[in-house]
Design a binder for these strands. Structure first.
Lengths: 300, 300
DNA sequence: TCCTTTATACTCGTGTTGAGTATATCTGGC
DNA sequence: GCCAGATATACTCAACACGAGTATAAAGGA
């Protein structure tokens, strides 16, 4: 029985939204996510990542959340018997944060996942994807029905509707079906920009997690400047979700949650009628907004 | 710069519900969670844990989900410079599974967290807890208001209502306030049964995660026998949530989700009028039940 | 037979949510 | 200066989900 000695590596998905586009910090011209070894000096995993990101990029990280941990047999290292344990994190960064010395490269989420952006309608690329997925399903008669149901559900076909939270499931399905380069598909046939190793999969995990989270925790504000208009807030949520929202209802939702307050100022930079500026109510609301339970409670 | 070499350890929170009581598998007579090193032979973390649990306990694990990864300076090992990375998992086990060779010891959740079970009303222990938390808040004038808001929210005091999902936050708050032995509190003053190292904290994480999850994913069925009555299902959910539910509304919720179907049989073992037996609709519903988004969508 | 116990079915009021419409206030062109 | 276009903000209405309570059905046991 071999004791588990392994290399520990931290991988960060740092995201920001600038000019209505969600972006991720990358290295190697967009080919990989920033990562580094977990060092002995670090107090904890979280602290280690924080330090390391600040040193490398000059960006202070606001919100930071662990995503997933996985292990792989070492690919690149000399000692092939060893293993690497990768711990991935999702971090949110303010739009206005000064760019650091390392001159980080930001790339739009949807370069890597063009089928995930539905703000301008259902992307054309999707019909090609679902077509090829259907072929993949038909190629295995034994699993055909099951695969079809999975495809329909995951991509919102037939009676199902598109669910933006399923970004990871969609990527995994495409991976299984061999539609992405990481799965050994040819470069011409591959869909979306690829990344080193499983980094694109980690990015998909981060996108899915964040899209789910904005619905029940007020994390969007970690991405907003201090003062913002309601439309700016809506556009940021839309960028993350890859969807367009219903303006009146979005506003109603926001102000019934009482998460923000007027600053008293207005801005005319938006084109038409001047828009009120709002700010997030930090102090009062550190807790809460965990919304209500969907269980039918009984009182006694 | 030291490269991160570390020990990798897997920790499992295996849960079941028997006789309307949620239980967790333990070792050392309930003092610790089962854990073991991640070995080289394992294909992946998840597979490693599955194998290892089956060998040790004879229980097949149904649902398995990663909880959290954390790092600590080694406590027990000889090489003090090294570190241990602990990866914790939540696993769900069927009630009827045969007990294995290892004769696992199951202990009720609420031995460790007596304040979390509200099925018979608000536990008496809670008044003591919140009283001591108030003292802790008052002891630090600078943070008093903030701490009070945290206590009120987390324990459902004043205008707030009890939120069963906050099990982890409650434990963390009590830890900060020094109310549990793990934080250096005396044995007499400690609340709830303690565990080795941070295992009780991991259990709290698992409880919180599971309580949140049953609301939007049909994971309860991983804990049910093949055939069950609606009341059995309700009692299982109640056991996990630590709450009593409104019977008519629970039934309505269940059948509008179309997650189960009648077997055609009935059982008279429940006392009064015979109850219909139901089964979970595996096949059709592997996906879905991710419920709806809370975002105000617009169609175009 | 009646009483207790559990199962199952129905009602009703309220609040949230999807969808659409109306009014206010700016800029820029004529 | 006035109108068109653009954006901001406010209001309405129907459908549905949800909390809460009530009524009926079918067993076992005194």
């Amino acid at each position: 029985m071999t004791i588990g000695l392994a290399h520990a590596e931290l991988i960060a998905v740092l995201s920001a939204v600038t000019r209505e586009e969600p972006r991720v910090m990358t290295i190697r011209s967009g080919d990989a996510l920033p990562s580094g070894p977990f060092e002995l000096g670090h107090r904890s995993l979280q602290a280690g990542l924080r330090e390391w990101v600040r040193d490398q990029t000059g960006h202070p990280v606001g919100y930071l959340e662990q995503l997933y941990t996985f292990a792989d047999r070492d690919r690149t290292r000399e000692n092939a018997g060893s293993r690497t344990i990768s711990i991935s994190y999702l971090g949110l960064v303010r739009e206005q944060a000064a760019p650091g010395a390392g001159r980080p490269e930001w790339h739009g989420w949807y370069e890597y996942f063009p089928w995930e952006d539905h703000r301008k309608g259902r992307p054309d690329i999707l019909s090609g994807i679902t077509g090829r997925l259907q072929d993949w399903a038909d190629a295995a008669p034994a699993h055909r029905e099951h695969r079809r149901r999975r495809i329909d559900f995951t991509f919102g076909l037939h009676d199902a509707t598109w669910n933006e939270d399923l970004a990871l499931q969609r990527y995994e399905l495409m991976y299984e079906a061999g539609l992405v380069t990481e799965a050994g598909c040819s470069r011409e046939q591959s869909l979306g920009r690829q990344m080193f190793a499983d980094h694109r999969r980690i990015l998909a995990t981060a996108i899915a997690r964040l899209r789910a989270k904005i619905k029940y925790r007020p994390v969007v504000f970690e991405l907003m400047p201090e003062k913002f208009t309601l439309l700016q807030l809506q556009r940021t949520v839309e960028a993350l979700a890859g969807l367009t929202l219903h303006k009146p209802n979005f506003r109603r939702l926001i102000d019934q949650q009482e998460l923000i307050e007027e600053t008293g100022e207005v801005t005319t930079e938006t084109g038409g009628r001047p828009a009120k500026l709002f700010r997030y109510r930090h102090a009062v609301l550190e807790e809460r907004a965990l919304s209500g339970s969907k269980l039918p409670l009984s009182r006694n």
